[in-house]
C-alpha cells in the first residue's frame, strides 16, 4: 500500500514538473496543452472502460457539452471563468445523467448507442433554433476571457486531479467492486454490490472529466464551432491512447498518450499518409499481440504497473 502511494506520488510529481517545464523549454504551448487534454480524456475513458468494460465511442459528447457549457455560463449568465469551467464540467454530468439509461446496454451496443447519443447532443447544440443559447452553427467567440497561460495551468490541475482519481479508484474497494461488476455483474450483485449505482457513479465521473477538459479547451481556444468540439476524432484519440497504453492502470493512458500523440506530432503532421499507415499497423499489432496494452509487457515480466 505504501509502495503504491509512493509510486503514485512519483507519477503525479513527474507529470506536474514536466508540464510546468514544457512551455519554458518549448515555446509552442499548444503541444503540451493538447497532450494534457488528451491524457485527461484518456484517463476519463480509462475510468469507464478500464474499470467497467464500457467503451464510449461517443465520449466526445461530454467534451463538447463542457465546451458549450462554459460558453453558455460566460456569455449568457456572465459567470467568471473558473466557476464557469466547473459549471461546464457539470453540464457534461447533467448530459451523462440524462444518458445514463445507455448503461442498460453492453458491449458494442453501448458503444454505438453512446456514439448516437453524442450525435444527438451535437445536433441539438448546432441547431439554428438554439441560436439564442448556443449560437447554433455560428460558433462561439469567448475572446473576452481568452487567457492561454491560465487555461494551460487549469488543464494541468485537471490532469493531476483525474490521474489521482484513477489512482484512488484503482486502489480502493470502490474500484475493486467495479472490476467485480465488469467480470460478472450478476455475481457482484449477489455479493451485495449495488451494480447500477456504482456504474452510474463512474459514468458520471468519467463524463465530468471530459466536461472539464472540454470547458478548459473552450477557454483555451476561445473561438470554436460545434463541429470542432464534437469532432469524433477526439473520442477516437482518447480511446486509442487508453487501449494502446493499457486500460485499468494509471500509467497506461499516460504512456499511450505520450507515445501516440508524440508520434502524431512527429510524423502525423508532415507525412499524414505514413502516419495513418503506421498508426493502423500499430493498432493491428497491438490488438493481435498486446490486447491489454503496452503496460501488459511489464506485467508479463512480473513488474507491478501502477
Amino acid at each position: 500500500m505504501r509502495r503504491n502511494k509512493l509510486s503514485n506520488a512519483i507519477i503525479l510529481v513527474v507529470l506536474a514538473v514536466l508540464f510546468i517545464l514544457a512551455p519554458l523549454l518549448y515555446p509552442n504551448q499548444s503541444v503540451p496543452f493538447q497532450m494534457m487534454a488528451f491524457m485527461t480524456l484518456a484517463q476519463g475513458v480509462n475510468l469507464l472502460y478500464g474499470f467497467t468494460g464500457y467503451l464510449p465511442f461517443g465520449y466526445v459528447g461530454f467534451f463538447g457539452s463542457g465546451a458549450y457549457g462554459v460558453s453558455i455560463l460566460v456569455l449568457l449568465l456572465h459567470w467568471s471563468v473558473i466557476p464557469a469551467v466547473i459549471g461546464g464540467g457539470l453540464f457534461a454530468v447533467v448530459v451523462a445523467l440524462l444518458l445514463s439509461p445507455l448503461l442498460r446496454l453492453s458491449g458494442a451496443y453501448f458503444s454505438i448507442g453512446s456514439l448516437a447519443a453524442s450525435e444527438i447532443v451535437y445536433y441539438v447544440v448546432s441547431n439554428p433554433n438554439m441560436q439564442n443559447i448556443t449560437q447554433g452553427p455560428y460558433g462561439v467567440n469567448l475572446a473576452g476571457i481568452y487567457d492561454p497561460n491560465t487555461s494551460y495551468y487549469a488543464m494541468l490541475v485537471i490532469l493531476l486531479i483525474f490521474t489521482a482519481v484513477v489512482m484512488y479508484v484503482k486502489n480502493s474497494t470502490f474500484g475493486m467492486s467495479l472490476l467485480a461488476i465488469k467480470e460478472d455483474p450478476v455475481s457482484a450483485a449477489m455479493a451485495g454490490i449495488n451494480v447500477v449505482r456504482r456504474r452510474v457513479a463512474i459514468w458520471l465521473a468519467s463524463a465530468f472529466a471530459a466536461g472539464l477538459v472540454g470547458a478548459v479547451y473552450g477557454w483555451y481556444v476561445s473561438v470554436f464551432y460545434p463541429s470542432s468540439v464534437f469532432d469524433l476524432t477526439i473520442s477516437i484519440f482518447a480511446i486509442v491512447f487508453t487501449l494502446f497504453g493499457g486500460g485499468g492502470t494509471v500509467l497506461g493512458p499516460i504512456v499511450g498518450t505520450i507515445v501516440l500523440y508524440g508520434l502524431y506530432n512527429t510524423i502525423g503532421v508532415s507525412s499524414p499518409q505514413y502516419f495513418q499507415l503506421i498508426y493502423g499497423l500499430l493498432i493491428v499489432v497491438l490488438v493481435m499481440f498486446l490486447p491489454q496494452g503496452l503496460t501488459s509487457l511489464l506485467k508479463r515480466r512480473g513488474i507491478n504497473v501502477p
Binding site: 505520450i258 506530432n265 512527429t266 510524423i267 511489464l298 512480473g302 513488474i303 507491478n304 504497473v305 501502477p306
Partner: peptide
C-alpha cells in the same frame, strides 16, 4: 520492491522520453 521501483522508473523515463518526442516532433515537421 525492486520490480516495483523498476516499474515507476520506467514510467518516469517513458514520460520524459515521450514529452521529448512530442516536442521534437513538432519542431522537425517538415
Amino acid at each position: 520492491q525492486s520490480r516495483f521501483r523498476k516499474g515507476t522508473l520506467w514510467a518516469a523515463a517513458a514520460l520524459s522520453g515521450g514529452m521529448l518526442l512530442a516536442g521534437c516532433g513538432t519542431t522537425t515537421s517538415a
